[in-house]
Design a protein around this nucleic acid. Structure first.
Lengths: 204, 204
DNA sequence: TGCCTACTTGGCAGTGACTGCCAAGTAGGC
DNA sequence: GCCTACTTGGCAGTCACTGCCAAGTAGGCA
């Protein structure tokens, strides 16, 4: 069992994530064209050139097919690990994320895709539910990671995690809104506006 | 059409929500006993003495059967309408909700049920997804109501709504945690702790 | 009192998501 | 060129959910 580990893992893994992303493309396309409800798994599978059975093994559900790619999750966990437990947490995380969003914006191909998915999520209730759940899991993992690396009070960490999550969501949703109205405001600026809005909450 | 409106609407409505809550009880019971996945709609319908077809008309989905009852939604909208647009919003809303939570705690029968549902949500991914989606819709409606009654900047209102939503979620989840560990801390106190944690975020 | 009509209920049939199981490839490592 | 782990696809089954139609049911009215 363990002996065979280093077989062709990398190669197979690569192939796997290759088809995985082809499937995601096919799904995204069909969802945009016909809506999620009207798109069957068979449609997607056919468009991606695999069998429905394989689709399920690969993606689990229709929704996950387009959602898994929205991987801020890894970023979030990474930022939890990098944190300096002795210094102010919020400041560090806010700064980290400003950089992270700049990276996202820099990858034009990737962020265009990201926006397409976000738009879809906003329109499709079943996608929204799946996305929210994913986000929630991400937040929980984040809290766990923060707890591990800082050892602080759980309620406070939860508050911090949810707060940060709101900040990012606000920024990205505002980004989508701006983009859909033809604006070209930079993501970083939008992020700063979102931050200001969230902080301004105290005196609103 | 319009002539028949005042028929026996109230009476029928009453009957309807009567069976509706019987169904909810049956579902809650079965979910706790066997888990959501292992419980079929037919099980619930049978336990509630109705046909599956009627179940769907009444509840829409398995998950909604237990979720609809978690109606903080009305409260939230009400608090948006009551708001004094000239005074500081956050302060008003925080105060309103302290009272609202006190009411919830006062209704012992009701809050025990509420905790059961929350516990279930925490354990059952499919319920979680549905609950999150419901919460999201609630928040959007809240923003719309706030916008209507205050006319302030949308991004700020969104930030405020999400912030408040986090506060309430933190409080209720902490409440569940405390309850499950046998503590008997008052909900109001927990709410204050959650508020402090969320405010403390800025300097964490 | 008994009909009229709007509304409710339940059954039936159909679609499609998702799963476990089994058989047929396929591709590294010997 | 075989051996073996892993991948793929098909098949059958369960169950969520929907539209349609037929059979109640309960107020309101002659």
């Amino acid at each position: 069992m363990t002996i065979e580990e280093p077989h062709g893992v990398d190669l197979r893994e690569r192939r796997r994530s290759q088809t995985r992303s082809e499937v995601a493309d096919a799904a995204l396309d069909l969802f945009e064209r016909q809506g999620v409800a009207a798109t069957t798994v068979e449609d997607i599978a056919q468009a991606a050139g695999i069998s429905p059975r394989t689709f399920y093994r690969l993606c689990g559900t229709k929704e996950q097919a387009v959602l898994d790619d929205v991987e801020l999750a890894a970023s979030m966990l990474a930022s939890a690990a990098e944190v300096d437990a002795a210094a102010p947490l919020r400041t560090q995380l806010v700064a980290t994320w400003r950089g992270r969003l700049a990276d996202i914006e820099a990858d034009v191909e990737g962020h265009r895709r990201h926006l397409r998915i976000r738009r879809l999520i906003a329109d499709e209730p079943t996608l929204l539910a799946a996305a929210l759940r994913q986000e929630h899991q991400r937040d929980e993992a984040f809290v766990a990671a923060l707890a591990a690396s800082t050892g602080r009070d759980l309620l406070q960490l939860r508050a911090l995690a949810e707060w940060l999550s709101v900040l990012i969501r606000l920024a990205i949703e505002e980004w989508l809104r701006v983009a859909d109205e033809g604006g070209d405001e930079r993501l970083e600026t939008i992020y700063d506006r979102a931050l200001a809005a969230l902080d301004g909450t105290a005196t609103l």
